[in-house]
Computed example of a mutant assay.
Amino acid sequence: MFTLNNNVRAYFYAINQFNAEHQETLNTLKVTLPKNSFSKPSTVIVVIGESASRTFMSAYDNPRTTNDTTPWLREQKNNPDFIVFKNAYTSRVNTVLSLERALTEKNQYNSLEFRQSATIIDIAKKAGYYTGWYSNQGTTDEADTPITIVGKTADTKKWTNQDLNTLQYDGTLLNYLKEVNPSKNNFIVLHFMGSHDNYQNRYPVKFAKWGDLAKNEPPLDYDNSLYYSDYVLSQIYTYAKEHINLQAMLYFADHGTVPNGRRNPDMNPFAANRIPMFVYLSPEYQALYPQTTAALKHNEAKYFTNDLVYDMVCGLLNIQSNRYDETQSIASDKYKFTRETLKTNLGTTPLTDDKGE
């Protein structure tokens, strides 16, 4: 009870801090919309993965990957509408520290505080989108406070995992997509439980493609969780294309993990820092925004850390803003970062330290 009370107090303290300065941020936030617009109401989706390392994904052709863990994404590499980024990393192997940066202006390369920062929800609202936040992670843990605060600013916000004793698989989020109004312009965020340990709890039995259900086999259980996430991503993509005029879809993970290793942000090998990231762009999007499309395709092999997702989203939405730095957006031809200038572990570890172990 003491811990719960502390968490509740910390949650409301963080809300009050954020709200005190966030209104001023909104008052000064300016957004200029693109000149071109889609022919009918459209949807942009951002999917946040959990504990997914590209080192263990078959789509990335890594020699450590012996199982076909991501067959759908592997196939999409040959789809001209998909851009699968080869060199994305987390800013920290910790969900809250990673996402409080990915979802806002705050990053490893500036001095902004979370409470001073505009969010991807703010930008989408100013750009005229109806915003939705749907999460398969809980809202009560202190560690999730900044993420929950951002989520609760959306026009519609729902969490599946309110009862921590009940398993909810990420496929549950598909039900929320069916609530999205196709007559509106929608900006939707879906937050996976993904491959968070215990891995056996992250997928239905029928997705146990490898290993023995009666045994705890972390590497194989982890592969199954990646396999299930790949399936859910395919279903999100298919439904959104067919029913809510999907124009762009971004997927990235908060961080990775090493399934047979001990999780410690300060002692993880680089496999835990390497994350998957892809973008889908519809043919209409590509025709309307050829410069953004060309930049994303040109930057496919460039290095990236996910604390720059906020600027990437601004680029995907093709807006101009006083709180958007194009040089930090991998969706811009002005993107300035390289392997030599990027860092992880909150700015303490250069990406050049990754020797590909």
Rank of each mutant, 00 (worst) to 15 (best):
A295P: 00
R54F: 08
F114N: 02
T95A: 05
V258F: 05
T327K: 15
Q328H: 11
Q76C: 05
L281S: 01
R54C: 07
N94L: 02
R323Y: 14
L173Q: 07
D354K: 01
T139S: 14
L308I: 01
S195L: 12
Q291D: 15
T28P: 09
K355F: 04
K30C: 03
R115P: 06
T70P: 06
F207R: 08
Q23L: 14
K77V: 03
Y285W: 15
Y231K: 03
K77C: 03
Q137R: 00
P269M: 08
N201E: 05
L112C: 08
L213F: 14
A208R: 13
Q17A: 10
I15P: 05
N322Q: 15
V313W: 14
I188V: 11
N299S: 10
T95Q: 01
F304E: 03
K297W: 15
P204H: 15
L308N: 12
A271D: 07
F2H: 09
L226R: 04
K334N: 03
P290D: 02
N216C: 12
A294V: 01
A14R: 02
T166L: 03
N165A: 08
N110W: 04
L103D: 02
L316N: 14
L177I: 08
I120K: 09
P204D: 11
L26M: 13
D144C: 14
I48F: 08
D223C: 14
G256T: 08
H243I: 14
E300G: 15
S329V: 08
I123W: 09
E179T: 01
L250R: 02
T348F: 01
V258I: 05
E24S: 10
R54H: 08
V279N: 11
R101H: 06
P290Y: 00
N268V: 02
K35Y: 12
F304T: 01
T148I: 13
L97E: 04
K355S: 05
P350L: 01
G261F: 08
F85V: 03
V150T: 05
L173N: 05
T145P: 14
R262T: 07
L250K: 04
F114H: 01
N268L: 01
V96S: 06
A20L: 06
N136S: 04
L4A: 11
F38C: 00
